[in-house]
Simulated assay, not measured.
Amino acid sequence: MNQAMQQLNETRAALSAAMHNKDWDAIGELDRVCREQVEVAMQDAGRDEQALRDTMEQLLALYGELVKVCTAQRTAIGEELTAVRRSSQGAKVYQMFG
């Protein structure tokens, strides 16, 4: 496996770990690095087509999972904001009549 593919696989593993830890800052940075490394791997004249295809399929699966995690997180944050808003409105009503 050439260096570009090795780096891409290492970044994919780090991105997976960041996703499982819900480390959103790391995910953002690793996503940027991953996109750069995909470009480098695609331009490598000596690339192993099958290894690249396998890695790209693994990345596709990881990004699919990442979208699900992000959607769930967004939903949870939305629910928290709704609860905070209701709580705040209840406190205002209580203060008006208290």
Rank of each mutant, 00 (worst) to 15 (best):
E39I: 10
G28Y: 07
D25L: 11
L60C: 03
R47W: 00
R35N: 11
A51Y: 01
D31R: 12
Q37T: 04
E10W: 04
Q7G: 11
K22P: 02
A18N: 05
H20P: 04
Q37K: 03
R12N: 13
V38P: 00
A14F: 01
V40F: 07
V38Q: 09
Q37C: 04
E57H: 04
D31L: 14
G28I: 14
E36T: 15
D48P: 05
D44V: 09
L15R: 01
E29P: 00
D31T: 15
L8E: 03
A41M: 06
G28W: 06
A41C: 08
Q43T: 13
A17S: 15
T11H: 02
M56T: 10
E39A: 15
E10P: 01
E36P: 02
L60I: 07
D44S: 09
L15G: 01
D23Q: 13
T55L: 03
A61F: 02
L30G: 00
I27G: 00
D25M: 11
L8H: 06
M42W: 03
D25T: 13
D54Y: 09
A61P: 02
E29V: 14
T55C: 04
A13V: 15
A14R: 02
A18I: 09
S16Y: 09
M56S: 07
M19E: 01
V33H: 08
Q7S: 14
W24E: 12
D54Q: 14
K22T: 15
V33R: 12
L30H: 00
A17N: 15
D54S: 13
I27A: 00
